[in-house]
Amino acid sequence: MTLQTAPRAPLPPFSFEDAVQKVRMAEDAWNSRDPAKVAMAYTPDTRWRNRDTFLNGRTEVQAFLTDKWAKENGYRLIKEIWAHAGNRIAVRFCYEWHDEDGQWFRAHGNENWAFDANGYMAVRHASINDVPIADAERLFHWPQGRRPDDHPGLTKLRL
């Protein structure tokens, strides 16, 4: 068994607790802003829709994330489970970032995920809207990287 085929627990079918764990693992990975690490959570032939961009395979995902995080500065993300069944999980999320001119944005979105039997994400559909915000409206203030366990999630932040 290779690194690319080793099971990636938790495996489907997901219990509620497994699904919550999978969501937090995804949030932590994306907050690392490490495109190579994040891409390894997906099947080699993963299919994505991200806004108006369609991607196929880990190589395209890694390139997309490299470009994304080169322009989305100060990126901090919170994901929250919406629903789950079998090998599927739906999440809602918000992330804050600023552009090269210092304008902050809060991106609001939903994702639908489908996993293979080894726990890798095979399909990801993401719908996302960016809303300009003032620096004073920011809510995500932890140091770059993993969101601290005691930082409120989306529901407590009323997002």
Rank of each mutant, 00 (worst) to 15 (best):
21 Q>R: 08
99 D>M: 04
17 E>H: 09
50 N>E: 08
60 E>G: 10
42 Y>G: 00
103 Q>A: 09
153 G>F: 04
15 S>Y: 08
137 E>M: 09
140 F>P: 01
135 D>P: 07
1 M>D: 12
127 S>L: 09
91 V>I: 14
112 N>L: 14
145 G>P: 03
32 S>Y: 00
129 N>G: 14
90 A>S: 11
97 W>A: 00
100 E>F: 11
109 G>R: 10
88 R>H: 14
89 I>V: 15
108 H>M: 14
142 W>S: 12
137 E>G: 08
135 D>F: 15
55 L>Q: 10
134 A>P: 01
122 A>S: 11
69 W>R: 02
78 I>F: 02
87 N>K: 13
151 H>G: 04
58 R>Y: 10
122 A>Y: 04
114 A>Y: 11
13 P>K: 08
66 T>N: 09
66 T>I: 05
104 W>K: 09
140 F>D: 00
103 Q>H: 11
67 D>A: 12
126 A>W: 02
58 R>D: 05
88 R>E: 10
9 A>W: 09
114 A>Q: 14
13 P>V: 10
54 F>P: 01
25 M>G: 02
90 A>I: 11
24 R>L: 07
20 V>S: 05
145 G>Y: 07
48 W>C: 00
43 T>G: 04
113 W>S: 04
96 E>H: 03
80 E>D: 10
54 F>C: 09
44 P>M: 03
140 F>C: 02
67 D>G: 14
146 R>K: 12
53 T>Y: 06
65 L>R: 01
13 P>R: 11
91 V>R: 04
92 R>S: 07
121 M>S: 06
86 G>C: 13
85 A>W: 15
26 A>K: 06
86 G>Q: 09
131 V>D: 07
44 P>A: 01
8 R>F: 13
62 Q>M: 14
68 K>I: 09
59 T>C: 11
148 P>L: 12
153 G>V: 06
31 N>D: 09
59 T>I: 15
123 V>G: 01
64 F>D: 12
15 S>F: 05
11 L>S: 07
57 G>R: 07
3 L>C: 11
22 K>T: 00
151 H>P: 03
122 A>V: 01
62 Q>D: 15
2 T>E: 13
102 G>V: 02
96 E>F: 01
110 N>E: 11
38 V>Y: 00
49 R>W: 03
52 D>T: 13
59 T>F: 13
111 E>R: 09
159 L>S: 08
55 L>I: 10
140 F>T: 02
97 W>K: 00
12 P>F: 07
20 V>R: 06
69 W>T: 00
85 A>F: 09
112 N>R: 13
61 V>W: 10
63 A>G: 13
28 D>Y: 05
157 L>K: 05
27 E>A: 00
85 A>D: 15
22 K>H: 02
120 Y>L: 03
122 A>R: 01
158 R>S: 14
128 I>A: 05
84 H>R: 10
150 D>V: 12
121 M>N: 04
86 G>F: 11
1 M>I: 12
60 E>L: 13
33 R>S: 05
127 S>H: 05
143 P>H: 11
33 R>I: 05
135 D>Q: 09
74 G>A: 11
38 V>A: 06
77 L>P: 01
104 W>H: 15
92 R>Q: 08
125 H>R: 06
57 G>K: 08
